[in-house]
Computed example of a mutant assay.
Amino acid sequence: MLKEIMIGLGALAASGAAMAQTAPTADALCAKGQVVTVRFNEIKPTGTIEGFNAAAVANQKFYRDKGIKGNVQLVGRAMVRDAATGTWSFSDKRASTAHVNPPGGGRGDPNDPAWKAFVAQYDANSTVTAQQTFCYMPAIDETATITAEIKKFEQVWADKAAAGDAAGLGALLDDSYMSYGKAKPETKADILANTADPKKRPASVKISDVTVKVDGGYAFAQGVWTETAKDGKVTSLSFQDIWKQDREGNWKAMMSQVGPVGS
């Protein structure tokens, strides 16, 4: 959910026709999207960023203590670019919160001590300079494109393993990669060492029945890995790979689970 929202940030997600509509609640008006309330805050001379962050934590805890779990609060700190040096730094004066899926009931009870406590924390550290509630539509669906990309990577994986191309295979694996299901867990280093060892290299590798499920910045691939050893022995294993997309949009395999076919 957060990935979809952040992709959409910065673009008002209502068309001119939709903006002309009215509804009794924000949730009803934004039925096909995601309601996000954005606040911009100026840190007071007597306040601190740390105090502002603590207020946001208390704000979130207030809702959790009330049994409300569907909302998420993002806390942001303004970044400033120095025109002379081109370097970036954090502002000590400007901060923001984005309340994703705020409870439809609106403001809490102003007489509730827990509500008054976190509001007092905010007020002690900052002043709200602007506030707006937006309707963000889901990100453009790239499931088909990502599915095809992951299937391609799975085939490249098999090809690199058969060719003994440890460097090529290494480019697909995250440094934290782990594989489970054999006699002992294998790290990325273990996998690459086996790939580079001619004695352990299979004569051929084939993958089949590959399916992919995409969930935000993760992709879950499963299929059957069949390798033929140089002595002709054939081994088939079912595999499940977890892929994660980094901030640059690149996919890396994080973990694998292998086992007998049909298990």
Rank of each mutant, 00 (worst) to 15 (best):
S256V: 03
G181T: 02
K160R: 14
K160P: 00
T145Y: 02
K188Y: 13
E186D: 12
G168Q: 09
N59R: 14
P202K: 10
P185C: 14
E186F: 14
V100T: 03
V205S: 09
T87R: 15
F239D: 06
G105K: 11
T25F: 12
A162N: 08
I5P: 01
T228L: 09
T97C: 05
A148V: 04
E142S: 11
P24A: 13
E4S: 14
G67N: 01
V258Q: 08
G249L: 07
G105D: 14
K252G: 10
G216P: 04
I207E: 05
D197E: 12
I242M: 15
A98G: 09
F118Q: 03
Q245D: 02
N59Y: 15
Y177P: 01
D209Q: 11
S15G: 07
E42C: 04
H99N: 11
K199W: 11
I68Q: 06
R201N: 08
K252C: 08
V156Y: 10
P260F: 00
G106D: 08
Y63T: 03
P202N: 11
R64T: 11
F153H: 04
K206M: 11
Y63M: 12
Q240S: 13
A18R: 02
A219E: 01
Q34M: 10
N41S: 12
T97V: 14
P113M: 05
N71Q: 13
N250A: 13
V75S: 11
A161Y: 13
D159E: 13
G181Y: 07
V72L: 13
A120L: 02
F134P: 03
R64Y: 06
I7K: 15
T22M: 07
T228F: 12
P110I: 02
T37P: 01
K152C: 01
D246I: 08
G10Y: 11
D190S: 09
A183Y: 02
D82G: 04
G33V: 02
D27E: 14
V210D: 03
A56M: 13
A130R: 06
T143R: 09
R107T: 01
A158H: 04
K151V: 05
F52N: 10
V119F: 07
G86V: 04
K206D: 10
S263R: 05
K116P: 00
V72T: 15
E142K: 15
V36F: 08
C135Q: 09
I150E: 03
A196P: 02
D165M: 06
H99I: 07
A54V: 09
T127R: 14
G108Q: 07
I191H: 04
A28I: 05
I68N: 02
A78S: 08
Q60C: 07
G8L: 01
Q257P: 00
Q222A: 08
K213Y: 13
F153Y: 12
S96A: 14
G181S: 06
D246V: 04
A139M: 07
